[in-house]
């Protein structure tokens, strides 16, 4: 069953053109997948600029290795695996450099918006709502950032990107059962973190 699913690759044609050196075909694939690539990278790393860098690197790496792509899985799956691996590498690098401060679950998350919110008049609900929503999103991202990579990746792929379990299993090279148990753990830990954020629950 799985085999059938994988052979029906909508990018198959473009990929074979790329293998023959068609750069325009590759551009088509870049345009098609860059948004999802960036979202995966961003949710993993939590930094927009870094995520953009990683996406570029991932596409260059994919181009260099496209002849090695055996079409056992879908091209998109292969591509997301690359961006996922590069993102995890980048997280490690950033941690080593001390750029990436771990989000503390015990301290309230203070953002610039807290300051702005206080100065704003209460009779502007729409702005306030928007700011509150943005604030909550930032705090949620902070909670995600605090997770270990193996929990983060399943959350990103399943709960944010909505990939089916078999595809996640293929990308992460772990059995589906492992994906599910990690996801359960990830959700529990994230839930505990989110409870500490005002306005989420």
């Amino acid at each position: 069953m799985k085999e059938n699913k994988y052979t029906a690759d909508e990018d198959g044609e473009s990929v074979s053109l790329c293998k023959k050196g068609d750069i325009d075909a590759f551009e088509f694939l870049v345009k098609k997948h860059q948004k999802r690539m960036l979202n995966i990278a961003f949710r993993m790393i939590g930094n927009y600029e870094e995520a953009c860098e990683v996406v570029q690197d991932a596409f260059v790496s994919a181009y260099k290795n496209i002849r090695k792509f055996e079409e056992k899985a879908r091209f998109s799956t292969w591509l997301y695996t690359i961006v996922m691996n590069l993102s995890k590498n980048r997280i490690k690098q950033l941690r080593v450099r001390g750029y990436h401060e771990e989000f503390s679950m015990d301290e309230p998350v203070l953002t610039e918006d807290d300051q702005i919110k206080r100065t704003l008049a209460l009779d502007e609900p729409s702005i306030l709502e928007r700011l509150e929503k943005k604030e909550i999103q930032q705090k949620v991202q902070g909670c995600i950032d605090s997770l270990e990579s193996e929990f983060k990746e399943v959350l990103v792929l399943r709960d944010m990107q909505g990939f089916p379990y078999d595809e996640i299993s293929c990308m992460l090279k772990v059995p589906e059962g492992t994906v599910k148990s990690r996801l359960f753990r990830a959700r529990s830990v994230l839930g505990k973190c989110l409870k500490k954020i005002k306005g989420v629950f």
Partner: peptide, 17 residues
């Protein structure tokens, strides 16, 4: 709580490149 958590994640939405 679980529903809220997954909702929360979905609410984050997509960022634009």
């Amino acid at each position: 709580e679980m529903k809220k958590t997954t909702e929360c994640l979905r609410d984050l939405g997509d960022i634009e490149p």
